[in-house]
Amino acid sequence: MIALDDMDRAILRALEADATQSAGALGRALGLSQPACWRRIRRLEAEGVIAGRRLTIDAAALGFGVTVFLGVKLATKGRVSLEDFERAATAIPEVQVVQHVLGLFDYRLKVRARDIVDFERVLRRRVMTLPGVGQVEANVVLSEERRPGPLG
């Protein structure tokens, strides 16, 4: 684990809010020179603290207005490998996240669909036909509030 000082944390918070900021703009906002800010960002990347920068797409603006989290319990763990299930689940375009979890369910899937009818199609034709699927529980997202990360 890398030791972070207050400036490193400030840089991470600022990049988490807007990863498109230049080192110069970020440095000015934090009272650092552009080269000093750039060196800190590069060190954080080299140490693996910054693992990448992502583009956030508004799914609803693209017509995907329904998000559903599915809990999936495998029925035949001995007859189907976890890798087979994971490979098949990640091949479904509407499934954005596949998490192997501990608890009541074996997996948690994040599914994006255009509407409830589209979600039902994905559930019936794709998710329920995955290898080893037993019990499935759906939780439709009604609203979402973004909270700052652990550094916020």
Rank of each mutant, 00 (worst) to 15 (best):
T56G: 05
F69N: 10
G71N: 12
D58F: 09
E45P: 05
L44K: 11
I50A: 03
E94M: 02
L44G: 06
A46R: 13
L74E: 00
P35L: 01
S81I: 09
R39T: 02
I41T: 01
V68C: 10
I50W: 03
E47H: 09
V72L: 13
P93C: 08
L55K: 09
A91F: 06
E86A: 10
G65P: 02
G63L: 00
G52Y: 10
K73D: 15
C37R: 08
V80W: 09
V49C: 03
T67I: 10
A59Q: 03
G52C: 02
A61W: 06
I92H: 06
E94L: 02
W38T: 09
A61N: 07
V66P: 01
A59I: 08
E47V: 07
K77R: 15
T90R: 15
K73F: 09
V72S: 08
I50N: 01
K73V: 07
I57W: 12
G78I: 03
A61Y: 06
R39K: 04
L44W: 07
S33E: 04
L44P: 06
W38M: 06
G65W: 11
V49A: 07
L74S: 00
E47R: 14
G78R: 14
A88T: 04
L74H: 00
R54H: 11
G63D: 00
D58I: 07
R40F: 07
E86C: 10
I50T: 01
I41G: 00
F69R: 09
E86T: 11
R40W: 04
F64G: 01
T90V: 05
A60G: 14
P93K: 07
A89S: 08
E45D: 12
G65R: 15
L82I: 08
A59W: 05
E47G: 05
R42H: 10
E45I: 06
A46V: 03
G48V: 03
G48L: 02
G78W: 07
A60C: 06
G65S: 14
A75Y: 06
F64R: 03
I50H: 02
V66I: 13
R42P: 03
A36L: 10
E83M: 08
L44M: 06
E45S: 03
V68N: 11
V66Q: 13
V72M: 13
I41D: 00
G71H: 10
R79K: 14
A75I: 03
G63F: 00
